[in-house]
Design a protein around this nucleic acid. Structure first.
Lengths: 220, 220
DNA sequence: ATATAAATGCCGCAAACATGGTATAGACTG
DNA sequence: CAGTCTATACCATGTTTGCGGCATTTATAT
């Protein structure tokens, strides 16, 4: 009876974390009314869900709100992921600002839905995340791409020559001027001169300023 | 609540850049066979498409391959965006590795599809990108989320004390030890000692090593 | 209560750095 | 052909760093 052969009959184990009573009830009803899915637990807070990991086997999917009392959904993601790395976390929230999206996805969420999504869309998204996808609201996906575009926008050009870039790379790597000279078969004085010119071009006056600029403005 | 695009008689102006003859033909046929869409030009290379910007009005959507002879699709994105920032670029390629995806999205692509997508999916995606979405293949969306997770990868903990972190921040900002001492109302010797301990904890021996480590491992 | 860690302060010295010069040779540009 | 850019090299000088050691006070933990 408790034979593993009947796994095809087992329903997907889903946990729900949502502080709003009505939404929680309706989501649980939706999930339990769907063939192959089972809302095993519905929690009001992350704390309750965290406790449950000690008493029950972890779920395949966690549907998680962000605006929660106590531990926020964002913080919750990391804790859940630590307790059960294989559990997939699907954010279901009203917040669509870039910061929340960014934080949630960085923390390890596998999908991001807005609460105005249709029940069909939510069920579909649960299936999608289980099959290795990353369900996202259309607007959210757009924000995600914008976040990417922002990353690459700052490539300042300080018109460093190839030699200067080469030397700057070695500086960033932590070598001293003399070590760089040895490495590149140059005189110490040459490296010194190049670095002098680099400082002028980057508008810095020491190594730390140069290295910081390299990383902050994505030079090289 | 009708979208302006649907009320207008004009069809959506789409350009196609794809070096494979058969795929190019079949895509053009697909688009032109879709109500409200028109494949205005089909190019073999980015160069040809770039030339066309001088002779015809820019398209609403560019369907772009990545593996192209001459200017690659990735480089093409930036050039197209410069020539016509409002044109939306939809990548349509066989490459699904994270590097390509990352580069394309950073360059300004508005969507990323794989060539194994069904014709219906492609048409749907064109509509989605026009309505402000970011159509992505399921696997691609998953990779995008993984890229985010990598960004926020666990910041290594070198057990720096608050004071040490504070001093390291000032070092990263480009201040000298003496300037930091003045800034924090400390003795030069204190700053010196702290930095000494920071070096030991970070396993570096100079400022550039420390600053590099701060950025590379997301310390502070 | 007593060990431990953190923050603070001090000394000294060799090494490395920052910055002001000057200068030559080759490459490219108008 | 003259002018600019780049890479190369050298010099001098004062400043800053890296690192060895040592010491005190405070806070935390056992």
């Amino acid at each position: 009876m408790k034979n593993a052969i009947h796994t095809e009959n087992k329903r997907i184990n889903i946990w729900l974390v949502e502080d709003n009573l009505r939404y929680r009830k309706s989501m649980a009803t939706l999930i339990n009314g769907t063939k192959g899915m089972r809302c095993m637990h519905a929690f009001v807070s992350c704390e309750e869900a965290i406790d449950m990991f000690a008493h029950d086997s972890p779920p395949e999917v966690i549907l998680l709100d962000i605006g929660l009392p106590g531990i926020s959904g964002i913080q919750g993601i990391e804790k859940f992921k630590k307790l059960s790395p294989s559990s997939l976390i699907l954010i279901l929230t009203i917040y669509d600002d870039s910061d929340k999206v960014f934080d949630a996805l960085c923390a390890g969420a596998s999908g991001y839905l807005l609460k105005d999504s249709s029940p069909e869309k939510i069920i579909e998204s649960i299936k999608e995340v289980l099959s290795g996808g990353a369900p996202m609201n259309m607007k959210i996906a757009h924000k995600v791409l914008n976040l990417f575009a922002q990353f690459n926008k700052k490539k300042s050009d300080y018109r460093l020559t190839d030699r200067e870039k080469e030397i700057l790379q070695h500086i960033v790597a932590g070598l001293t001027k003399q070590q760089i000279a040895d490495e590149l078969f140059l005189s110490f004085h040459t490296v010194n001169t190049h670095l002098k010119n680099i400082y002028i071009k980057l508008h810095v006056h020491n190594i730390s300023g140069a290295v910081s600029k390299v990383y902050k403005e994505n030079i090289l």
